[in-house]
């Protein structure tokens, strides 16, 4: 056996040890970080081990791992094709196995009818054949089968529904408003009792209430639905469309928003919010793309371009242009 193979087996063994220790609650975080930092091959092995772990979870969640299932008898008879087909049907579109890594929750519709995300969390749910929904930060959906289709109720936050041609039909409901996407990608965000809809690809019809007539929203168009108001459509530029789905890459994108709006958007993702101390900087306009999990680049850009300083407190990050002695006593600059 070559040295490289032996080395890799050793690294795999260490990664497996860490994964199990974390699962059993016996891992020392500092020692783990030291190990992971020591070599990118360690980080890679840990990712691979986590994916196998996730695959095992998926087998449980989708009922694939149940012993004594009827499929087993067919398997013993050697009818592998029948077994495989049955399992494939059951698992639906679990293309997610490889995607479903670390950190980001992922489940298959058979396992749950209700899904929530915490602040800063994202989650992907395979609803059925050819239909996947991504949940953004601080969001909540509930869904159920309705005949041949799936009804999704957006209770809080934001979702992005991707539906393939021929995939199971889906309708999104939210406070009496309704979206029916044809094949494509539709982003829906509930904000202050209004539903913002952006069709990133394909098309959708929307209704602002049960009795209202349907309005067609084409690709790269968006609208805001509110009770008893006729929706007005507007076209999106490619940049605006990219901004609308930046969260899928764990990012926020700004394109001329003022600081107050940008901070409000950022705060959706942060457990420790950014607070504007100094109202004179509210109207600063900015652009750029930043990680939504870590605002440090955003804060650096504000400091470099506008001289806005960020001060950390235990429960917030405060922005001001005015580094008064008082502020410095209280806050530690980020």
């Amino acid at each position: 056996m070559g040295k490289a193979v032996v080395d890799q087996e050793q690294i795999d063994a260490e990664a497996a040890d860490w994964l199990v220790a974390i699962d059993c609650g016996t891992a020392d975080r500092t020692a783990f970080e030291r190990w992971r930092q020591a070599d990118p091959a360690h980080a890679l092995a840990f990712i691979r081990a986590s994916q196998i772990n996730r695959g095992l979870d998926l087998l449980r969640e989708t009922g694939q791992a149940v012993r004594g299932a009827p499929a087993r008898a067919a398997e013993r008879r050697g009818d592998r094709r029948a077994v495989d087909r049955r399992r494939f049907l059951k698992i639906g579109a679990a293309g997610a196995f490889v995607l479903g890594a670390a950190g980001i929750g992922l489940s298959v519709a058979a396992a749950a009818r209700d899904a929530e995300t915490a602040v800063g969390e994202r989650r992907r749910i395979v609803l059925g054949r050819g239909a996947v929904v991504d949940l953004n930060t601080d969001s909540h959906i509930r869904w159920h089968r309705d005949g041949d289709g799936i009804d999704i109720h957006l209770l809080k936050g934001e979702l992005l529904l991707e539906r393939r041609p021929g995939g199971v039909p889906c309708s999104i409901y939210c406070q009496g408003m309704r979206i029916e996407p044809l094949a494509g990608r539709v982003d829906a965000r509930l904000r202050d009792r209004r539903l913002e809809v952006a069709v990133l690809h394909g098309e959708a019809t929307v209704r602002s209430s049960a009795g209202a007539s349907a309005v067609r929203v084409a690709s790269l168009q968006r609208t805001t639905l509110a009770a008893d108001t006729r929706p007005v459509l507007s076209d999106m530029t490619r940049i605006q469309a990219a901004a609308a789905e930046a969260w899928q890459q764990g990012e926020v994108q700004f394109d001329g928003e003022d600081l107050a709006e940008a901070v409000a958007e950022y705060n959706r993702y942060l457990s420790r919010p950014i607070v504007i101390e100094d109202r004179s900087i509210d109207r600063i306009r900015l652009g750029g793309r930043f990680s939504n999990a870590d605002p440090s680049d955003f804060l650096k850009a504000l400091a470099a371009i506008y001289g806005v300083r960020a001060y950390e407190t235990a429960d917030s990050i405060r922005l001001s242009r005015d580094p008064t002695p008082h502020a410095q006593k209280i806050f530690r600059p980020v």
């Binding site: 990712i47 995607l99 670390a102 980001i104 764990g250």
Partner: peptide, 10 residues
Amino acid sequence: WFRPIDIWFS
């Protein structure tokens, strides 16, 4: 236990 880069990579 996963860094942002691990999630992105995965």
